[in-house]
């Protein structure tokens, strides 16, 4: 392996990519079953439910995959416990390598906006852009909110032993709005940023392949690369590009996810006047 072919820099470990792909699949299943049930009064919703075996089965699938997601979330929480640098504990949470938001992220947002209006050069982001941190924590709290309300509604008779039954009405609407927020965010904002904007077009393979091209990172995450170079760690993080067949698989997976998401998004938007809210 000569160094010239190592043109990509590692961003995500295999475990992180596994979490991501499991989340992709379960999120899409939950979206399809959930949207299908929500739109059951329309042909669009009936089509979606039909795929999963009808209105009733869609609920069953939704519940099982939901429980799977909650378990995955638990595993992820355990994983985080191992990932935190406990030796330098409170400080390490706010280091550059941490995904925990810092004050500089707010500054990053504003310098990013200034760049858009041509007021400055592209800001030197570190390992995580503020939009990536937002994505992560939005999913994190979304899981808590959707997971808890979903669990309540999955077993309504049992859960109303511990909470008053009228909370099912409330849980239903919290679940619904949070899900709409999550889907809107993923299907519009996340997909656009990761696939369609020119810098990443046709697709940012980082979360599938684990690595990004070094030129791209130098541009988008200048501070991170600089830091790695200064610490002399850049070399150790360089990897080769994946085999073309694997790359093709990544594109197919990424684009299928995107088209499913866009189908749900546009189907939902077009049919939203026809359902009982």
């Amino acid at each position: 392996m000569d160094h010239k072919s190592r043109i990509r820099i590692l961003r995500f470990s295999p475990v992180q990519r596994l979490f991501h792909i499991l989340l992709v699949i379960s999120f899409l299943v939950q979206s399809a079953t959930g949207v299908g049930r929500m739109f059951i009064e329309t042909g669009f919703g009936r089509l979606l439910c039909y795929i999963f075996g009808g209105y009733g089965m869609a609920r069953v699938v939704h519940i099982y995959v939901g429980i799977f997601m909650i378990l995955g979330f638990g595993v992820h929480a355990v994983y985080l416990m191992f990932k935190v640098d406990w030796r330098r504990f409170p400080g390490s949470l706010f280091s550059e390598d941490s995904i925990v938001p810092r004050p500089s992220d707010i500054k990053g947002f504003f310098s990013h906006m200034q760049w858009m209006f041509g007021r400055r050069s592209f800001p030197p982001f570190d390992r995580w852009g503020f939009w990536e941190k937002f994505d992560y924590w939005a999913v994190f709290w979304g899981m808590v909110i959707i997971g808890s309300t979903g669990l309540i509604m999955a077993f309504p008779v049992q859960s109303s032993r511990y909470i008053p039954g009228w909370f099912l009405n409330v849980a239903f609407w919290i679940h619904r709005i949070e899900a709409i927020l999550a889907m809107g965010h993923v299907f519009i904002i996340h997909f656009f940023i990761a696939h369609l904007r020119r810098h990443n077009f046709p697709m940012d393979r980082a979360m599938f392949e684990g690595s990004v091209s070094i030129e791209s990172a130098r541009h988008e995450r200048a501070a991170w690369i600089q830091r790695l170079e200064k610490e002399g760690r850049l070399r150790t993080l360089m990897v080769e590009d994946a085999h073309p067949i694997r790359r093709a698989v990544y594109y197919v997976v990424g684009y299928s996810a995107m088209f499913i998401g866009l189908f749900l998004l546009f189907g939902g938007l077009l049919n939203s006047p026809d359902i009982t809210w």
Partner: peptide, 23 residues
């Protein structure tokens, strides 16, 4: 939403840097 839209427009107007065809 505005952030994403602006970002998209801004990159359209910039000469592309970085690896060819996706990153």
């Amino acid at each position: 939403l505005p952030h994403t839209a602006l970002w998209g427009v801004r990159e359209l107007l910039t000469k592309k840097k970085g690896g060819a065809g996706g990153s």
